[in-house]
Amino acid sequence: MSPTATSVLVVVGVLFGLFTIASGLIWVERRLLALWQDRYGPNRVGPFGLLQVVADMIKILSKEDWIPPFADKPVFVIAPAILMVVTLLSFAVIPFTPLIQVVDLNIGLLFFLGMSSLSVYSVALAGWSSNNKYALLGSMRAVGQMLSYEVFMGLSLMGVVALAGSFGLREIVEAQKTLWFCVPQCLALVVFFIGGLAETRRIPFDLPEAENELVAGYHVEYSGMKFAMFFLSEYIGITLISALTVTLFFGGWLGPWLPPLVWFLLKTFILIGLFILIRAALPRPRYDQLMSFGWKLMLPLVLLNLLATGGWLLAMR
């Protein structure tokens, strides 16, 4: 097969896999939440309620795609698309196996950080263009939260980069052949995962869409397919953070006996399960608690981690 055909196949395969996983996660999350909260969850449509996803899709696709007359129309339309595009683009640099990777950028990690910082715009613009006070309040919270937690997320990754000696994700995975980075970089792993929770705006960091105070936050005016794009982007975002955590801290595709792709998916799904377990277990903090937790605990921790990593590398040289 020619190289062009192979890369087209990889791109299409990754996109297809992602959309399948993301829409499947809607059902997985509801079933798992129900299990942990001692309920049944969706179990009526098809075997184990598996066809619930199809039912949801039919409902959302046939719904009226309404744009409020008071909204800023072009910005309102473009906001959910930005989130979808940048979240999907981040997957371009993730090495699923030694053979399956869309592009092996030497600045792969920085590319991910750039894309995740661009996703802030989607939330900010959605809230602003809706011309609704709840939406505006939600997106103000989201911007503050995402900008702050991006700082710790970026800094926590620098320890990994220092150990691997590269920004390229493939080199980072190959540097973990002897020891996964979750051992020497355990502090960074915790900070990165919490930062990832905040970036995807999941419980306990879902203050931007806190239902009991802001109705639905920044996407309160969205319905139909545009709402579905926000909704799906959340699940793609969860998959992204899990896949990236696996790549950076849990040795990516590395593992004995099983083929690389199976290892990668297995590790990713365990982390996705952790995301859902956290949602089932934790309450939502106050906004000032969120901010002081970030700046007064996470920032010193991650700087300490960076200092220790740097010192260790210097001593080992």
């Binding site: 920085l110 950080l113 750039g114 661009l118 802030v120 505006l136 103000m140 900008l147 991006e150």
Partner: peptide
């Protein structure tokens, strides 16, 4: 490529977000 990535992360991803935030 490094400067390009920093341009996206810092200028487009952080500074301009603050501009948008203030205008909002």
């Amino acid at each position: 490529p490094f400067v390009a990535a920093l341009e996206v992360i810092i200028y487009a991803g952080a500074i301009m977000v603050l501009f948008v935030f203030v205008v909002m």
